[in-house]
Design a protein around this nucleic acid. Structure first.
Lengths: 215, 215
DNA sequence: CCCTTGATTGAACAGAGGTTCATGCTTTGG
DNA sequence: CCAAAGCATGAACCTCTGTTCAATCAAGGG
């Protein structure tokens, strides 16, 4: 035998892997996945482009890994709150507030995770991410119904509405300007959360149209 | 002089232009803007690829034109309802129902207009499109406040929430399966609209958390 | 100190898709 | 029917990025 992977080497390999992932993550946090080009990642990580392929089989896999790491953190935060031992509506309130606040705080990253145009592989990861959100919201709605504090409603549809309302109101063309969020972000977050909670609390009171088309 | 553009020719040119736009539109309606490749558009329109560039300076412009034509129809429908002479909440109800119903009916097209990853030029058009939605919703909310039928609220934020809730609940990973929408689409639409109206009607009643973190 | 094996490098390669342009065909006016 | 100008054609071209790989370097064992 003539070679054995020593701890020194293993450590260096692990370091490289982390350096690559961190470089990619930083680029994504700044300019979205569009900015995470292999050449750039390599440069920022301080390795050659070819080296990237000794750690990840493809750009897609590298990006997926970055997506998973970043999104896992977010999901854990929300799941943690959702699992607390408190009234369902309190947990729902806090989950929504946390979700929205964190999106405001890390707007660029939130954009990358939730809204940026990405290719198929990442779309798949994003689907998982969003489904988890949906599941968390739906679960809390079920809990609230079980507690009898809200009228019966379609938890899945309602959860989807909430999942759409929050990012749309904070990211993208319908969101307030960045500097407005800087100043009054907390207010906006509160408005959005109250919107969602009002919708949930108001369930069961069907609105009926009074006047049909007259003009 | 030796040449003049006759009516016959003008008509043929116009026909070609329409054929190209229609071909592109059909491709988009089927497979989104990703399916609108120049080669495909040309083939479907029955012209050579080079010919496309005699009618449109670039793919981007062609796609923008398609986007404008398709989205204009949608915006006009909603604007028409919003402008009727009826109570604001009735108009809001009908605008939301129409928006959601049309999205369900033309899911693929709605996906292309609202959610599909597209490049910068189209993102710009989409921004316009979504802003119009926001403006319509916000206008109706203002009207409702003026009528005194809803409590004061932030119209822009609320409109953004609505703009996000509806597509998210109907298109994408959190939407019901396509066959479910086929069967129970009207129900889902109704659930979504009631969610939005409940949120609007419930404005002003602030939800307060009872129990802070205890675990 | 040398041989072997693994790791690194970065320039060359490859695929995809939009765009161009030399060529040939049509139409127009005389 | 001919010359001039437009128009259509589609294969070649360009660009942009992800990916590869022959050459080089570093590390381990005897």
């Amino acid at each position: 035998m003539a070679y054995r992977r020593t701890d020194t080497v293993s450590a260096r390999l692990a370091d490289n892997r982390r350096a690559i992932l961190n470089a990619a993550r930083d680029l994504v946090a700044q300019g979205g996945f569009a900015a995470a080009q292999m050449t750039e990642v390599a440069r920022k990580a301080g390795v050659a482009t070819g080296t990237l392929y000794r750690y990840f089989p493809s750009k897609e896999e590298l990006c997926r890994q970055v997506f998973r790491e970043v999104s896992a953190r977010e999901m854990n935060v929300l799941a943690g709150i959702a699992a607390e031992n408190r009234p369902a509506l309190d947990r729902l309130h806090d989950v929504l507030t946390t979700f929205a606040s964190r999106a405001v705080g890390g707007r660029r990253l939130a954009y990358a995770l939730l809204a940026e145009p990405v290719d198929d592989g990442l779309t798949e990861e994003r689907t998982r991410f969003r489904r988890v959100h949906g599941d968390i919201f739906a679960g809390l709605l079920e809990d609230a119904m079980a507690e009898g504090v809200i009228a019966p409603l379609n938890a899945r549809v309602t959860a989807a509405c909430i999942s759409g309302a929050i990012p749309t109101a904070l990211i993208g063309p319908l969101a307030p300007e960045s500097h407005e969020l800087e100043e009054a972000g907390a207010h906006v977050v509160d408005d959005i959360v109250q919107f969602c909670l009002a919708a949930v609390l108001g369930a069961g009171t069907k609105y009926e149209v009074e006047q049909r088309i007259s003009a």
